[in-house]
Design a protein around this nucleic acid. Structure first.
Length: 593
RNA sequence: GGUCUCGUAGCUCAGUUGGAUAGAGCAACAGAUUUCUAAUCUGUAGGUCCAGGGUUCGAAUCCCUGCGGGAUCACCA
């Protein structure tokens, strides 16, 4: 249903017939609003073959197309631009076919398996705004890739081991007095996070004390008793010490319970969850392979490295002298294990752009080891969420907590809905659901409408808008159409399935044109791994429909039966496309608000 | 310092592989509701696309230089 390609095809045929232009690099784009026409051909690339000036070339092309392509109703030439108009009946046919297409917008199966890894939290503190962007992006990208016809596996690699976990555990042992989520009523991830903070506080105090007694700061950082305890605990963990493992399992369990609640509220989910405690030994075999191939080398102390200086990078450690592996080693091993299991044709890692270097190296090493599928790895390198005063810092207490943020958005939506009287006549349960959809929708859209790669700003002092380019705006459009349809059925109006043969006006053509772009929009968003493209599309759709809604009465007296049928049919298609697009963003739509 | 990245309206952001006179939202101002939901719609105002050079029919977009912000350059993950 890509109308642009249809028109491009006309132009190709014209170019070939007139100038013998085979495979000419022709460009067709949507005609800008200030000109008459639907699609525009830029004729400059044809001039070498036509041996005419731009105007004459455009004129000749236009005449040929108008004469040979029945769908084209007219054309005009401005400078080197040929504006092509398509007839109303053409658009009516397009609308008809959209209307009857099941799952309109989605592509047929490509039979490709793709994986999306996202979230990947540490288990020592609750999720914050940065994780929110990660989770929303990951989930949405997965949905979009699915709509583009791929078999998608959403995976989460939980960082559940390491010194940072031990810090929370030590602090809990020291200061916890047996506190549990049950005993205190604190959500598990927050409770563990509190002890991580407690560790940091005690650690700093000990460092200060040591420095005061004459020790250098660097030494104090290593020698502080609480840090030594944490390091000792990590060794015990690695040795499989029962007591340490039990506590580790218990506290991680609290965190997972907490995460589950947050994930559920965010509306994200996974097909498979990996735990680093189970994958951190992967990759050691790969080190042997690399050594055998001469890609890696061993130093005198026994550590293993790869020299990437010829590629403009540095030397990278893969195995410590004591034989333990590092982050890169496990990631290599995990990638290989996943490829063996899934043979993915696209493996997207949703990870912040602070790890660009890591992924550049990861892909390069796999390439050097001879794994061609290294090319299938895509690092969706999203930008940080910054506050007006800069990056979020847990030490300075400027972290925006995910649970708090979501709760406050829902509350804000509730207050605003009450003020506007939108909740009148709804049950408590219904009001809550409406507020939830609006509040979370506003938050999700606010984050997803921005190009993932760009750093974005969040100002906690200014609440997220509910008007303009926002989810509530789009949801409102949808709710109004639902309301319209409720009214239709309550009035007992019976509609014919067939679209009437009417003449579409400009606004209607604009709507159909936009509807026709939906499949290409999904494809573009999938290719670019960018939910922002879908968000922009949904907004544009809602905006144009709202204008249409204002100018075109539907159920009022005096509207002809055929107009009414067309307008309702158009409204229905718009509503379903908006619903579909928003679902790709993970945003739920209320049918009243 | 090396590498990467960003710089568009007061603010937050769009701007497809280079295409016509640079686009939205918010904020500001002026309007629209006897009507299918005004969380809507219409209009006004707001720009040295960081600066300078280059490439060409044409540059916010590509190249170079400079300025400014951010990330990264761990035997942390």
């Amino acid at each position: 249903m890509n109308v642009e390609n249809i028109v491009l095809d006309y132009c190709r045929r014209a170019g070939e017939a007139l100038y013998g232009a085979q495979n000419a690099d022709l460009q067709v784009s949507k005609t800008r609003r200030e000109f008459v026409g639907d699609y525009t051909l830029v004729t400059f690339p044809l001039l070498k073959l036509s041996h005419k000036n731009p105007e004459a070339t455009a004129q000749q092309m236009g005449e040929w197309i108008a004469a040979n392509c029945p769908a084209v109703s007219g054309f005009n030439v401005i400078k080197g631009f040929l504006n092509i108009e398509l007839g109303g009946s053409f658009w009516l046919d397009i609308l008809r076919s959209i209307q009857t297409t099941k799952n309109y917008g989605t592509s047929p199966s490509t039979r490709r398996t793709v994986m999306v890894e996202y979230s990947s939290p540490n288990t020592n503190k609750p999720l914050h705004l940065g994780h929110v962007r990660n989770n929303l992006l990951g989930y949405s990208v997965a949905r979009i890739l699915e709509a583009a016809g791929n078999k998608v596996f959403k995976v989460n690699l939980v960082n559940d081991r390491g010194i940072h976990i031990c810090k929370s555990m030590i602090a809990w042992q020291r200061y916890g007095n047996g506190e549990t989520p049950l005993s205190s009523g604190i959500k598990g991830d927050h409770l563990v996070g509190n002890y991580y903070v407690a560790f940091d506080k005690a650690y700093k105090a000990e460092i200060a004390e040591l420095v005061a007694s004459g020790m250098s700061e660097d030494e104090a950082k290593k020698e502080a008793p609480i840090m030594r305890e944490a390091s000792a605990m990590l060794l015990k963990w690695e040795a499989g010490d029962k007591e340490v493992r039990d506590l580790w399992r218990t506290m991680n369990g609290w965190v997972y319970d907490g995460f589950d609640v947050t994930y559920k509220e965010m509306g994200v989910c996974f097909d498979k969850i990996y735990y680093e405690s189970e994958t951190y030994l992967l990759g050691k075999k790969l080190v042997e392979v690399g050594l055998a191939k001469g890609v890696f080398y061993r130093r005198d102390d026994g550590s293993v490295w790869i020299d990437l200086r010829e590629d403009g990078l540095d030397e990278k450690l893969l195995l410590r002298a004591d034989g333990t592996s590092v982050y890169m080693t496990q990631d290599l091993g995990t990638a290989l294990a996943r490829y063996s299991e899934f043979e993915f044709s696209d493996m997207t890692y949703v990870v912040g752009n602070e790890q660009n270097y890591h992924f550049t190296v990861l892909k390069l090493i796999l390439k050097k080891l001879g794994y061609q599928w290294s090319d299938a790895i895509y690092h969706l390198s999203y930008g940080m969420v910054e506050l007006p005063e800069g990056k979020m810092k847990s030490r300075e207490g400027t972290v925006v907590d995910a649970d708090d943020l979501m709760a406050s958005m829902v509350e804000e939506a509730r207050v605003m809905s009450l003020e506007l009287g939108k909740l009148d006549g709804l049950s408590q349960q219904e009001s809550f659901q409406v507020s939830r959809k609006i509040g979370l929708g506003a938050l999700k859209y606010f984050i997803l409408k921005v190009d993932p790669r760009k750093t974005m700003l969040f100002n906690p002092a200014e609440s997220i808008d509910f008007n303009g380019n926002t989810a509530p705006f789009i949801q409102y459009t949808y709710a109004r159409i639902c309301s319209l349809e409720r009214k239709v059925s309550s009035l007992g109006i019976v509609l014919c399935d067939e679209l009437p043969t009417v003449v579409l006006d400009d606004k209607e053509i604009e709507l159909v044109k936009l509807l026709a772009e939906y499949p290409a929009t999904i494809s573009a968003a999938a290719a670019d791994h960018s939910p922002a493209i879908v968000a922009a599309y949904a907004y544009q759709m809602a905006k144009v429909y709202n204008q249409y809604y204002h100018e075109h009465p539907i159920l009022r007296d005096g509207v002809s039966e055929s107009d009414r049928a067309l307008r309702l049919a158009l409204s229905r298609v718009v509503a379903s496309v908006i619903l579909s697009a928003m679902s790709l963003l993970g945003i739920e739509m209320p049918d009243r608000m």
